Amino acid sequence: MMMALDALLPVLLVIATGHVVARIGLVTGDNWRGFEKLTYFVLFPCIIIRNLALVDFGALPFLQLGLTLAGAVSIVATFLLLIRTRLERRYGISPARFTSIFQGSVRWNTFVALAMADQMWGPEGVALIAVAIVAMVPLLNMLSVTVMSRFANADTPFSLTRLLRDLTRNPYIVATLVGLVINMTGLMPPEAVMTSMEMLGRCALAAGLLVVGASLDIGALRRPGPALSTAAVLRLVALPTVAAGLGTLLGLTGMALAAAVLCTSVPTSSGAYLLAREMGGDAELMAEILTLQSIAAIATLPIALVVLGAM
């Protein structure tokens, strides 16, 4: 428990710093968006490429971890789609609100997972999170965009071509592929390039957490209702429980099992709000889900790591 709390506390402090900086207006609007793009397209790809290029693949159970995470996401996503009409009939949850519940239940905040993995396990932990990115980012993008296109009344209809274009342009996926190619071929970039990526990577974790903090809107949090509660329970309790069960069945132990639990225990992605806003979903509900989960994860994440991850 103490290891998880020790790793979580600095993460929370940096997130809180981002929230305060945004609230007092030291950094505003377009500046935050520019900072988020820099983090997303430059800083995090550097840390992913460098760690994957240097990691010993033979020492980590990549296949089992990928199958565990993809399987857990698929199970929870399928469950949500099966109960959608029941949610609508019993609680009056509209299709647009359902899309926010869906995203809030299955998407994950990569920034927080990477920061905690680095704090607890160092480069090996970051490499495991990179595996999670490969396993979950394409699947989650496909699921989220498909559900938004189907239920959010988006102006732009769902297109497989557009989806494939978005996936191939995702900087996390591209960075992961680059890191894998370097590792497998042994063709290392010059030392100066690797050193520069290390320097940029050091900035990535703090920058990503500042962006998370800036996106939180405590004032938007209303009294929790069925929509908020459903997304919180599925995201913070059900998903990590399913992942731990699948991981155990597939033979995951130690750090790899804990990494699976970590990836499924962090709050939902702040990018879910942007997708909801752009594709006609319930962006206000999405902001509330993100805020509630970020607060609740202070308690649930360490417990999940200790109980389910067997730390």
Rank of each mutant, 00 (worst) to 15 (best):
M1L: 13
D6G: 11
L9V: 13
L13T: 02
L13A: 14
G18P: 03
Y40S: 02
R50M: 00
N51L: 00
L52G: 10
A53G: 08
L60D: 13
Q64R: 13
L65K: 04
G66K: 04
A77C: 03
T78I: 00
T78Y: 03
F79Q: 06
F79V: 06
L82S: 10
R86S: 15
R86G: 11
L87P: 04
S94N: 01
T99A: 05
I101D: 09
F102V: 04
G104P: 02
V112C: 10
A127Q: 00
A132I: 03
M136F: 01
M136C: 02
L139Y: 01
N141M: 05
V145I: 15
T146N: 11
M148D: 08
S149E: 15
S149V: 13
A152D: 04
L163C: 05
R169N: 12
R169T: 03
Y172K: 10
V174L: 14
L177M: 15
I182V: 14
P189E: 02
E191T: 15
E191G: 15
G201I: 08
C203K: 13
L205R: 00
A207Y: 00
G213C: 00
L216G: 08
L221W: 07
L221E: 09
P226L: 01
P226M: 06
S229P: 14
T230R: 11
A232T: 11
A238V: 12
G245W: 02
L249C: 11
A260N: 07
T264E: 06
A272Q: 05
D282W: 05
A283D: 15
E288K: 12
A296H: 08
I298N: 11
I298Y: 06
